[in-house]
């Protein structure tokens, strides 16, 4: 069968794009709060104010005539990330992992000249990567020294953890691993691997690439069944705290693990994608419905994370 029937998907609890837009995004995410997440600079400043861990901001470039200043700004750093403040879907993010003389190297090993870096910044400012081509700001931030836990599973780029937060409760999580096919990007539709994660303990459940199950990393060959995300007990409360920070009811939180700093929030998304369901092999709908039904007393982020772990974790039921 080439097509699934709507009934089959319903049985699996799969949420479709229309349901996400009408019943969650437009209902729980007030429009005026969008800039908080659509503008990564605002997100970062807000997070710093709220005491939420984020990668360090090295500098910003706002105007075309300041592009020349980039050379001085990035001079002290061998590794850094340039990203558009209003970029979407990982567009326009340039990761520099290495420097030699006047050449900059991407994690993939491709080299760029300083002129090319400046052109990239200039493109960001003129709005090439922002929604509707609006003027934008280029952010330069410290590159995450990523945790060795994922060494065996990362080919290029940084693995990141996506957690869906509904009304402050974590409902589903996945680990996104860049592959050669995805050119170091963590977008599933570009060929990154999505690994479903057990909310109870951070253990990998299953993995998919291009919507098909995979059992080992396509580039490194490492099996996924041994994969377990470290610092899991810190990750969920951190993600859950973004609810208070932004006020958005339906939120995708992207987290990376830094060797020294632990979990860091790198991006928030008011319209998180649906691929997380494929990675987990199960639908979001029943979990969202469970949170909707739950009328508990006010809890803080740690308590909410705990509640979700008990409610949605698979391994916890094994233990208990």
């Amino acid at each position: 069968m080439y097509l699934a029937t709507p009934r089959q998907l319903k049985k699996l609890g799969i949420m479709g794009m229309n349901a996400r837009n009408v019943e969650f995004v437009s209902k729980y995410n007030p429009r005026h709060l969008y800039p908080l997440v659509d503008n990564k600079l605002k997100t970062k400043l807000l997070a710093q104010k709220s005491g939420i861990a984020v990668p360090e901001l090295l500098g910003t470039i706002e105007f075309q005539h300041d592009v020349k200043l980039a050379r001085n700004l990035i001079a002290p750093f061998d590794q850094f990330v340039i990203k558009p403040a209003k970029g979407s879907g990982g567009k326009g993010i340039l990761v520099i992992a290495e420097r030699e003389h006047d050449l900059y190297f991407k994690p993939s090993g491709d080299s760029l000249t300083h002129d090319q870096v400046e052109r990239h910044i200039s493109n960001i400012l003129s709005g090439l990567y922002s929604l509707g081509g609006a003027q934008d700001v280029a952010m330069i931030e410290a590159m995450v020294q990523f945790d060795s836990a994922f060494d065996a599973y990362s080919y290029e780029g940084i693995p990141d953890i996506r957690v869906i937060i509904f009304e402050g409760y974590p409902v589903m999580a996945m680990l996104r691993l860049a592959t050669h096919a995805s050119d170091g990007k963590a977008n599933l539709h570009q060929g990154a691997v999505g690994v479903g994660i057990d909310l109870a303990n951070g253990q990998a459940l299953q993995a998919v690439q291009f919507n098909r199950p995979v059992f080992k990393h396509p580039d490194t060959g490492q099996l996924f069944d041994k994969l377990r995300i470290p610092h899991w007990e810190r990750i969920l409360p951190l993600a859950a705290a973004c609810y208070e920070m932004t006020g958005l009811g339906y939120l995708g939180v992207d987290i990376v693990l830094d060797k020294n700093l632990g979990p860091l929030i790198i991006e928030l998304n008011a319209r998180p994608g649906l691929a997380i369901q494929v990675a987990n092999g199960t639908g979001l709908a029943p979990r969202l419905a469970a949170i909707k039904r739950f009328k508990g007393e006010a809890m803080n982020a740690v308590e909410r994370a705990k509640y979700s772990q008990n409610l949605f974790g698979l391994k916890s039921s094994d233990n208990g």
Binding site: Y2, A4, Q8, L9, L12, I14, A19, V22, N211
Partner: peptide
């Protein structure tokens, strides 16, 4: 149509592998 919350035709294809495994 703006209130339609059902699946899109493309989603029946997209999520089809999940039903297979199931």
């Amino acid at each position: 149509l703006g209130q339609y919350t059902g699946y899109r035709l493309a989603e029946l294809r997209r999520f089809q592998p999940m039903t297979e495994k199931h």
